[in-house]
Nucleic acid binder design. Structure first.
Lengths: 196, 196
DNA sequence: GTGACTGTTGTCAGTCACAGACATCACCAT
DNA sequence: ATGGTGATGTCTGTGACTGACAACAGTCAC
């Protein structure tokens, strides 16, 4: 009939998440994932550069969302305003329907150091790309890198909170709160803002 | 005479850096590193949990330096002041004599994504540990995580600058400049309050 | 329709990272 | 000496990942 089933990558990703969640990441072989959707190990590695990547494929879309948000910002925006715009834009990637899926995925990641390493790496790539875009807009170093890394940090903290048990606020709202907190942190003068 | 040569880990690390630098990370096998100092592959993996780790062993000492700096700070220090103290303390790890070694090591890391991933991971572990210490001192979330991640970012940016070609300033001086830049970045504009 | 072309998959064989089990071999305390 | 200890070597196995090549279903030109 058909040559091959379409959506091979998506089926592999879904199967991988299922298997990782039910029996653990290390206890699941790439061959096992492939066989569970009627493919071979070789095909798995044609779709994903390595075993971890099956959980992280598609992050480029998130990066693009960040860039799109910045591109739409006014010319005279400050670096932090650009970062804020990027965060707003990226929030569209995390509608409420996706929250449960994100939670399941995160439980898998949280249980394996190798996956956490990859997750951090993706966040770094995001920051590097945002930094590059800032530089292209004339932001100088080290401000560009600092703003970009701060944006990635805010996103990471906000995302973690977004999938926290009981959390119901949309991610945009959390992002704004976290960004405000960061501004307050750096702005504190001679008095303690927290602690004691 | 002696049972075994002392300083096995150090010899393996030195040999690994040499081989990585001369023929590339991926082109160097763990067995090759071990044999170059008269040991076996199995022994290599007893000293380092994985092949990448041979370049990153000892980072706990850096983490400890961060923590020591914070521990020595006054009780009423703000989160950013604590981070500043940690950075000052960590700078002791990077005297001028070490700059060339750091440069060589970094050229190796810069040429391999897997090593960059591990480097970022180590920086994340550092940030997580600093965040934990901040929380132990009463700093609440998300301020603790934000301050800790910012500290790690400042350190990373400063370190990168420290090993840049032609750079001669000590790392403390660079750290202070980068930290000041970060403060300025966040302070720009009226900083609208978050919707909560 | 036939044949060339393309993109995806399967098969096969190989390398290398890494781990478990067990023996060995100084040295050290008793 | 005797037994314990810690680092090492040897052996063996698994699984991640890769290169080369064949097979195959569609597509397009003619």
């Amino acid at each position: 009939m058909v040559r091959w089933q379409p959506g091979t990558s998506e089926r592999l990703q879904a199967a991988a998440l299922d298997l990782f969640a039910s029996q653990g990441y290390e206890q699941t072989t790439a061959a096992e994932i492939a066989q569970s959707v009627g493919l071979t190990e070789r095909t798995f590695f044609r779709h994903f550069s390595d075993k971890r990547e099956v959980l992280f494929h598609g992050q480029q879309l998130l990066v693009d969302a960040f860039l799109a948000g910045m591109a739409a910002a006014p010319d005279d925006a400050t670096p932090m305003e650009l970062v804020a715009a990027a965060l707003e834009s990226a929030a569209e990637f995390f509608p409420d329907e996706r929250r449960e899926h994100s939670r399941l995925r995160q439980t898998v990641i949280d249980q394996n150091p190798a996956l956490q390493e990859r997750e951090r790496h993706k966040l770094s790539v995001l920051a590097a790309t945002v930094g590059e875009a800032l530089r292209a807009r004339g932001v100088t170093e080290p401000a560009a890198t600092l703003a970009a890394e701060s944006g990635a940090t805010v996103f990471g903290v906000a995302f973690t909170q977004w999938i926290a048990p009981g959390e119901t606020r949309p991610i945009t709202q959390i992002e704004r709160a976290v960004l405000a907190e960061l501004r307050g942190l750096a702005a504190v003068g001679p008095g303690p803002a927290a602690g004691d």
